[in-house]
Design a binder for these strands. Structure first.
Lengths: 272, 272
DNA sequence: CTTGACTCTCAGGTGACCTGAGGGTGTATA
DNA sequence: TATACACCCTCAGGTCACCTGAGAGTCAAG
């Protein structure tokens, strides 16, 4: 008959934790005094407690440990749980490894530029969307407005003519690589909420959900190259690779005040 | 002016999370309608949100991120935080790696023995303790009781004669390696609560706090070898090394019923 | 004017504990 | 025998980064 404090000293587990394990039905004292509520343990309970600690050390939750300590658990089930745990730990391991890579990339960037980077890259999954699109080839970089403008007008007109509605989102897909600025192959798209028939000039299809690396660019379209550079560098430094045409999503756009625009640049990526 | 739901869709952050960031003063809407409580965001806030997400991805807490986003933080401080984070991530990384090793050791053991291992090894720090000790050499393994018994009597007598008190804990230090069972060099110790003078035969000193790998052995002393074997195997499989004489701590001990004893076996270890 | 999508606040939950308040218990010493 | 002191109890509330759900108010379209 060992009082909780002595049992705590023996096992190096805090009194609070022992009470918590009691409450969880994970390790119940051999006796609880009915009048005082005092908990009394036995030396025979140390192996069970040690098993709990060992399993906790392997990363199992108390709930899982309770299962594993219950008798009637087959060896197969036990092995299954261990294997699941192994794969989870492997996952966490690689997560931490990637995190470390990202931290080191940021440190290097600080060394080089003497400031926090201007762009923060985030990985996300762009949702599936139904779009109406007009694809055009643009001879030189400064002709972009002159080609994209009419392309968008054409798409919007078509949508209106079909009696459908856009939901306000529009984006451009650039089929040429990010570092090519001549004869670019681009696609002006407007998101719509229900299917329409397509034509030769206007295609209607669904963009599937896509994992992308993204940055927010604020200001003129001419400075997009900076965002592209930041993204390309990040993608390279963090072990991703580009797997499709990149997207420009126009979040804030006023013709009269182009330098106050906000645009998201998204590169579809996968882990290399 | 973007409503919270649209801002959530743009940023792929849940509405709940945005409200939480507002409450944390991490990202406050540009405007909150005083009557309805509706939050309104601006596209200009996306870069800040992206920075929050990027830093969260590096493993920082929201509290740390708040600091890092506050202006007036020098580049030096920033670099310091990143370096701290790097070392913490490295720590977690090696923790997970060790965890993986332990899981795989357990899986192997299950394959071999077709059951959960009998002993669960835990790493802990044995606290510092003040002891009175009598060191004796024991010719053969079956003479252990015949030598240790008188040694303990001598220590207890000495403590009593000095008018001091033992606190009930006693242990044996084995200076010979665990796999040697002849001519063993052992030390019978009793924990005391205040300093005593020593003699030729009885030494009084403080055992420093020591990191140990430990198992609980239940039953006869003759079966200790199994516990030793389990410990040695674990220590080897998990990349530790033994750095001192091992200890036997008598937790439950009745002369009349030796097979109902409980003993802790502790090997002082360090990471190899 | 209704419908339906959206928004608000507030309370409570998650896991594995820890802290502290307020009060009872057990034993050794003056 | 009184008292000091270490120990034990329960219960409430906190941690972190959110999520769930209830109940009620708001907005835009039809």
């Amino acid at each position: 008959m060992i009082k909780i404090g002595d049992f705590a000293r023996l096992s190096q587990v805090s009194v609070v934790t022992l009470r918590y394990y009691d409450e969880m039905d994970l390790l119940e004292p051999v006796k609880v005094d009915h009048f005082t509520g005092y908990r009394y343990y036995s030396a025979d309970q140390l192996p069970r407690l040690n098993r709990i600690l060992a399993l906790k050390d392997l990363g199992f939750s108390l709930e899982q440990i309770k299962l594993m300590l219950a008798d009637g658990l087959s060896l197969e089930q036990l092995r299954g749980m261990l294997e699941m745990q192994r794969s989870q730990v492997e996952q966490r391991l690689s997560d931490e490894q990637e995190r470390l890579v990202r931290i080191e990339a940021r440190l290097r960037q600080i060394e080089l530029e003497d400031q926090m980077p201007n762009y923060d890259v985030v990985i996300k999954t762009a949702p599936a969307m139904l779009v109406a699109a007009r694809r055009v080839r643009i001879p030189t970089n400064d002709q972009v407005p002159e080609y994209l403008g009419p392309a968008y007008s054409e798409v919007y007109d078509y949508i209106r003519k079909q009696g459908a509605k856009d939901n306000g989102q529009c984006l451009t897909l650039w089929h040429s690589p990010a570092d090519v600025y001549a004869n670019e192959d681009s696609e002006a798209m407007v998101v719509i909420d229900r299917p329409l028939p397509g034509t030769d000039r206007i295609k209607v299809y669904e963009l599937p959900p896509t994992q992308v690396a993204a940055v927010i660019h604020q200001g003129n379209f001419e400075e997009f190259t900076q965002g592209h550079a930041a993204l390309l560098e990040w993608i390279d430094a963090n072990g991703y690779k580009i797997v499709g045409p990149y997207r420009e999503i126009y979040i804030k756009y006023e013709k009269d005040n182009l330098s106050d625009s906000t645009t998201e640049i998204q590169f579809p990526v996968e882990k290399a």
